[in-house]
Amino acid sequence: MSETGAMMQGRAWKFDHDVSTDLLSPGTYAVDPVEVRMIHTLESISPGFASDVRTGDLVIAGRNFGCGSSRETAAENLKALGVACVVAESLSRLFMRNAVAIGLPVLICAGVHEAFADGDEVAVDLAAGTITSGDGDRRLQGEPLPPEMRDILAAGGILALLDSQTAG
């Protein structure tokens, strides 16, 4: 895992408000392996997403992204598909915890849903908490994650952190 200050740059996949864990990880595939689950990520609202998303792409969303269940697979599916970061107006508490716990960077940023369009090239600086358009014209300041959560991300997730703690 790179240091969380690293820039992430890629195509933005834009979603609306209240994208639920049922959409991110449908219950029907709850106990299937990640290779199966990830194919169905967001299929109900964006059938082409799972097949077309490329490693390094970013997800931009409205309010309450990841609302619903505790299923970590919602974040895990996005990470497995190569999504580098989720930037949303707000994140559900559980999604935010889970994303950090598995090492998927997230950023809460007011106005992001309005400011960017699907397909935009965007760059995110996690440590600074900013998202910038590819041409540099638009830049929004989000809420940088607190140090406690950045430490977990930097370790590569909470289990990697545990591993280093027990090894230490």
């Binding site: 970590e72 598995i102 289990l159």
Partner: peptide
Amino acid sequence: GTDSHTTTHGALAAASTGIGTSEMAY
């Protein structure tokens, strides 16, 4: 609990909340 509705036990004045699998392993 590994279920979002673990908030249920707040009915008995327990600070009770859901977490994911990695955090539960921790």
